[in-house]
Write a protein that binds this DNA or RNA. Structure first.
Lengths: 148, 148
DNA sequence: AATTAATATTCACAATTATGGATAAAGTAG
DNA sequence: CTACTTTATCCATAATTGTGAATATTAATT
């Protein structure tokens, strides 16, 4: 039984029913054919960001909905095809139609070295605050916006 | 040295220079401080879909560009938070800043039942060709643009 | 076909990640 | 504070994944 599958089931359970502690969650997982030790479950909960809080009717394990803001970084990484520059500006090539989203994401980074962006269909032009910063901004982007 | 980093370097090298065989690639990687055995490189190449083909000037290891069209569907699915409608229009909520990209994708579907889309920051309004088609267009979108 | 060049696979082992039992630590209730 | 409940961590081990040397297989050249 893979960790991934277990995590999915945990999400499902916590979103659909009221679970008061990890032990109870163990039993619910068992019912679905997944055996897991409390130690492992503790780690799972921490990885999934599960937290335990009081409610009117006692305690409950709560799982946060995926935070949109955090998801976007992964999206942007996938959308970017390349990041290159000449002496005065940086050009990002994206998947077709995705430049606007990438540009918007970069704008929100609020990097003071970046004056702004202009996005076409599959190209984002990044305008540096000073042409002298090109190299470091390029570095910054390649580390922060590329996968692998 | 992680496999991921190595893969990324391989992509870089194969996209920017002409490499005729794996042995040559080993040397180029070495130059960048990455030591790797041919066996491993062979696996890397297969994982990355690298293929060797003849060109006018001999052989060359080619790496396929990631097919944009196919990737986008997955992206769009992740970007869409909900799809709902009233009697006359369909509203898609997206992750912040992603509406333009989603709208553009829908436009390219060229579904004759869709007159057009208007995108704000995190909302896409889909305008049906006829208000009578709302239900079927909603169905179409929910099956084609949602995961789960 | 024979020879050489290039790549893929097998095998053994290394490195990393996942896991459970035992137990410590933290939290809750009295 | 003390007793009790719940969760987190330590440790040892299992399972998985990554790797290189040697070798087999495939492809190219003559």
């Amino acid at each position: 039984m893979s960790k991934q599958i277990r995590h999915r089931k945990i999400k499902e359970i916590l979103l659909s029913s009221t679970v008061t502690n990890q032990h109870e969650l163990i039993l619910l997982l068992e019912k679905r054919g997944i055996d897991v030790a409390q130690a492992t479950l503790s780690r799972d909960c921490s990885e999934l960001g599960v937290l335990r809080s009081r409610t009117a009717s006692g305690y409950r394990l709560m799982i946060p909905e995926d935070n949109p803001g955090q998801m976007i970084k992964g999206l942007v990484e996938m959308e970017i095809q390349s990041i290159e520059s000449n002496e005065s500006s940086i050009v990002i090539k994206t998947l077709p139609g995705r430049a606007h989203g990438v540009g918007s994401f970069i704008d929100h980074l609020k990097n003071p070295g970046i004056l702004g962006t202009i996005a076409g269909d599959d190209t984002v032009l990044v305008i540096p605050s000073s042409v002298h910063d090109i190299r470091s901004i390029l570095d910054y982007m390649q580390t922060n916006l590329l996968n692998n």
